[in-house]
């Protein structure tokens, strides 16, 4: 059997989920034997290749996130999301109680440390969506590993299940929302 091809990306997130991924410690060697990492935050490859498993951390906060999620969904057979942001919206969704304009004004103009602030308008910067959304509201997701960040043993469990050809459902004792 050839290696399982995996692509990961982090969208509206803090990197904590990828850190927790690395916290599986020496098990990463076993994972690396079975998995070929294509695109990930450390490979700096821009395009997604066709892969078996796509992995997303982070919520959908901008048009770029939305596009990336859709692209990865198209290129992968199974899509797994890690962390509260990707599963539920998480920290980025704290802004959802306010309008996008209020959020931008607060961050770039009204914040106490800002003087003569401007809301960035460069077309190179991806525009915010009106709300930060869980991935499942944009594309179909096959497997969810919640947690902020998810326990590393939960991530490992999910990967092992996938390698065994099963769609993982996290056992109760590995469930956590914080």
């Amino acid at each position: 059997m050839g290696k399982v091809r995996l692509a990961t990306t982090w969208l509206d997130a803090c990197a904590g989920c990828h850190m927790s991924f690395l916290d599986i410690d020496e098990a990463i060697i076993e994972v690396a034997k079975a998995v070929e990492f294509t695109r990930s935050p450390i490979t700096d490859i821009k395009e997604f290749a066709e892969v078996d498993v796509g992995l997303i951390t982070g919520a959908i906060g901008t048009f770029e996130h939305e596009e990336e999620a859709k692209e990865l969904r198209e290129k992968c057979k199974i899509l797994i999301v890690l962390g509260d942001c990707a599963c539920f919206g998480g920290i980025p969704s704290m802004r959802n109680a306010f309008s996008k304009d209020e959020v931008l004004r607060r961050a770039y103009i009204e914040s106490e440390s800002t003087k003569d602030g401007r809301i960035p308008s460069s077309p190179e910067i991806p525009a915010l969506l009106e709300k930060a959304l869980p991935v499942t509201e944009v594309v179909k997701v096959d497997c969810f590993v919640p947690g902020c960040p998810p326990r590393s043993d939960a991530i490992l469990y999910a990967l092992k299940e996938l390698l065994q050809g099963r769609i993982p459902v996290l056992p109760r004792e590995m469930m956590r929302f914080d």
């Binding site: 999301v81 599963c87 539920f88 919206g89 969704s93 959802n96 109680a97 306010f98 709300k131 869980p134 499942t136 509201e137 997701v141 969810f144 590993v145 919640p146 459902v169 996290l170 056992p171 109760r172 469930m175 956590r176 929302f177």
Partner: peptide, 21 residues
Amino acid sequence: LQALAYEYQVDHMRYPYNFPS
């Protein structure tokens, strides 16, 4: 509420959030 969500393995929501203020 959290304990019950763990018990019922609620790992995602099938409804859009309301986000009331």
